[in-house]
Simulated scan of single mutants.
Amino acid sequence: MVEASSARDLARRQLIDDIGTFIIVHGLDISEANLTMALGICTGTNVALARKVVDRRASGLPMTQVWLDEQCRGNEDSVERIADKLERSLESFAATSRDARATAAQYNSEMQAQVEQAGEHPEREEIRNLTVLAMAMLERTQYLEQEMRRSESEAAALRGSLAKARRDADHDHLTGLPNRRAFEGLLERHYREAQRDLDVLSLAFCDIDNFKRINDAHGHDTGDRVIQAIAGALSRISDDNCHVARHGGEEFVMLFRGLRKEEAVHRLDAVRESFAGRNFVNRRTDEPIGTITFSGGVADVFAYPSTRDALKAADIALYAAKEQGRNRIVAAD
């Protein structure tokens, strides 16, 4: 038993080493998305992606963050296409079921009238036999009508479940904010619209300062509440032209439509300053946590060749804010 346990521990350590090696060798960020992706590749559970990685290695091409994100986005698009096809199938089935039920109901009414009329003249044996047969057919069609009504209800419930699954896929369960996947869709939409309307567009990366220290000292429940508090503070400045999403871990990303980079810095810095003035307490132990701060980097989206380059610039500005002492917002060069 001890030997089996040791073997399992060795296998787990090896898997952790493999994941770490994959992240470091290819110069990838240590993020929730990348760790999940690396786990799927190293264990082979994400067969399609693992095969693509093997093929790319064989071709001698680099394993970049951009390439990996494109592969994952392709998987998400495939799932979305399947969901769309399923929804169309459900709608078609529901329409067919409604039409069939309406026809059956009309047929039942007409048959019921004929059976009642035949029952008024039971003197001939042929009519009696026909009446019995018609009654049996009527009972059967009534049962089928009920089954079709039940199928309609099930199709409606499935459509509701599919819609909920789509909403859940785009939202972070801890904060209720849109997640990275949803934000990327928002960014692309606003990028196209702002480009068309000659509007300005800025984006920001935010990261909670010393978050690991908070988690280690006060536990993950407290860490979750800190993430929720930051999410709430950032959400209070969001509107139709300002969007906030949880990018993963302790990172958030924001989009400012109609605000120049300097204006976005000022708006985000006001949130940072207000939040830094609060004092937090561990609810479980009543132990003071003290002040909690965050840092941010802001970039002008149209100052870069693509939205991906703009995100990278904001991320670099964020790390500059960290290097300058944290608890500040820095504009990208």
Rank of each mutant, 00 (worst) to 15 (best):
A83K: 01
L86G: 09
L61D: 15
G44C: 05
N34H: 03
V53D: 09
V25Q: 15
M63E: 13
G27I: 03
G60I: 06
V66M: 09
A33I: 01
L28N: 08
A95R: 05
V54R: 07
A33E: 15
R81F: 01
P62M: 10
N75F: 02
L35E: 10
D84Y: 03
L61A: 14
G44Q: 11
K85R: 11
E91H: 04
K85G: 14
L39M: 11
M63T: 06
A94Q: 12
L86R: 12
V79Q: 14
F93N: 13
T36Y: 03
W67C: 08
D29T: 07
L49S: 08
N34D: 11
C72P: 00
L49P: 03
L28S: 06
R81I: 05
A38Y: 00
E70L: 08
G74Y: 00
L61S: 13
I30L: 13
A95D: 15
S92R: 05
G60A: 08
M63V: 06
E91R: 05
Q71V: 07
C42M: 13
T45Y: 07
R81A: 13
L35A: 03
G40R: 02
R57P: 01
V47N: 12
N34E: 11
T21R: 04
A38E: 08
A48W: 04
A48P: 02
G44K: 05
Q65R: 04
V79G: 08
L61E: 15
F93E: 14
C72R: 06
L68R: 01
A94C: 04
C42Y: 00
N75P: 00
E87V: 02
K85Y: 05
A38W: 00
I23C: 07
N75E: 15
F22D: 14
F93L: 14
E91N: 10
I30S: 13
N46R: 10
L49I: 14
V79I: 10
A95H: 07
Q65H: 03
H26I: 08
K85E: 15
M37N: 05
V25P: 03
K85Q: 15
V53M: 06
E70G: 11
S78I: 02
A50T: 10
S31A: 11
Q65S: 13
E76H: 04
T96L: 06
V79M: 10
T45N: 14
V47W: 02
S78Y: 06
D55M: 09
L90N: 04
T36C: 09
K52N: 11
T43V: 02
R81Y: 02
R56I: 07
V47L: 08
T36H: 09
C42N: 08
A33Y: 00
T45L: 08
S89N: 12
I82G: 12
D84G: 10
S59V: 05
R88S: 11
D29N: 10
R51T: 13
G40M: 05
V25L: 13
E76T: 06
L49K: 03
K85L: 14
W67P: 04
L86S: 13
H26T: 10
C72L: 12
D55T: 11
S89C: 07
G27A: 09
L90S: 03
G44V: 01
N46K: 08
I41A: 09
R56D: 12
D84K: 08
R56A: 12
